[in-house]
């Protein structure tokens, strides 16, 4: 407040007391580069490159497993897409049930979410593979349907919570505006709330798709036919049949990344496309 008090502590003296923040930042950066260089140097000198190549990029193993990969990748994508479709449809129903005014629906949806979120997905897959067909005397003619139901049932539990949060994140004023124009609650939900919620939940739904993609590896528990193999199953089989150390696993891992990384760009593109012009 008063100029006397300001001049009591000379600014210059305070500012010179230690190294300037800029100099400290430069020093810190230099130290970090030195550490990286040292680690790389140690790795390069100590690693047995010949053996590493043998274990991770074995030629024979590559020749054995590579031809099987495109079909397995396709299966993986089909299973993911089918399970995602089931998950999003069921998840939307569950989300609406959780928001219902009827207590019974809320209780059922909450119970469903808690159950399927709480048990390992593998258990559900096994249930759909053996327990349910036996218990209800049914046979799944389509392996895709079987996988979609099993993984979709689990995924729906997670998606329900995401969709509910997205719906609730749409400002209340949007609903009031639509209702004050005479739109019914259903029309308000369809035309105003869900389109806005969709954009909010796009990033978490991408997460869900990626998780599903990886969960398709659990389908090994269904005892698949050769033509139905997905990526992980192919990798595991090659591990025992072709040898070559970890090569087949490395290749399969790369295949997963080749699918998931474009998926992320697709989401970013969708986000831009569905973004409202001028909207932050």
């Amino acid at each position: 407040m008063s100029s006397e008090r300001l001049s009591a502590r000379p600014a210059l003296e305070v500012g010179r007391a230690r190294m300037s923040p800029r100099r400290r930042a430069i020093l810190s950066r230099r130290i970090q580069y030195v550490v990286i260089f040292a680690v790389l140097l140690v790795l390069a000198l100590t690693a047995d490159w010949g053996r590493l190549g043998e274990v991770f990029f074995n030629r024979e193993a590559i020749e054995y497993v590579a031809p099987k990969l495109p079909h397995a990748a396709l299966n993986t994508i089909i299973y993911t897409a089918a399970a995602f479709a089931v998950g999003i449809a069921l998840g939307l129903v569950l989300a609406l049930m959780k928001l219902s005014q009827v207590r019974f629906y809320r209780v059922v949806a909450t119970g469903y979410v808690e159950f399927f979120r709480g048990i390992p997905a593998l258990l559900v897959v096994i249930a759909f593979g053996y327990a349910i067909p036996t218990a209800f005397q049914i046979r799944f003619d389509s392996i895709i349907l079987q996988i979609a139901l099993a993984l979709g049932a689990v995924s729906a539990a997670y998606m329900a919570e995401t969709i509910r949060a997205g719906i609730q994140a749409v400002p209340k004023g949007q609903v009031e505006a639509a209702r004050s124009l005479g739109m019914s609650s259903g029309a308000t939900l369809r035309r105003v709330v869900i389109p806005q919620a969709f954009r909010i939940i796009l990033p978490p739904m991408t997460n869900e798709a990626v998780l599903l993609l990886k969960d398709t590896s659990l389908t090994f528990a269904l005892g698949l036919q050769v033509l139905d193999f997905e990526l992980t199953k192919v990798g595991r089989n090659a591990l025992s049949e072709a040898g070559g150390g970890l090569t087949s696993i490395v290749l399969v891992g790369i295949m997963y990344l080749l699918i998931t990384i474009p998926l992320s760009s697709l989401t970013r593109w969708l986000e831009r496309k569905t973004g409202y012009k001028g909207h932050v």
Binding site: G173, A177, A178, L181, R191, V192, Q196, R199, Y276, H279
Partner: peptide, 24 residues
Amino acid sequence: FQQFNLFPHRSVLENCTLAQRQVL
């Protein structure tokens, strides 16, 4: 409303036609 409450995902024209088409 005080906060306008326009539908941010619809153009100005669509804001004015949505309820007309949906309701009327």
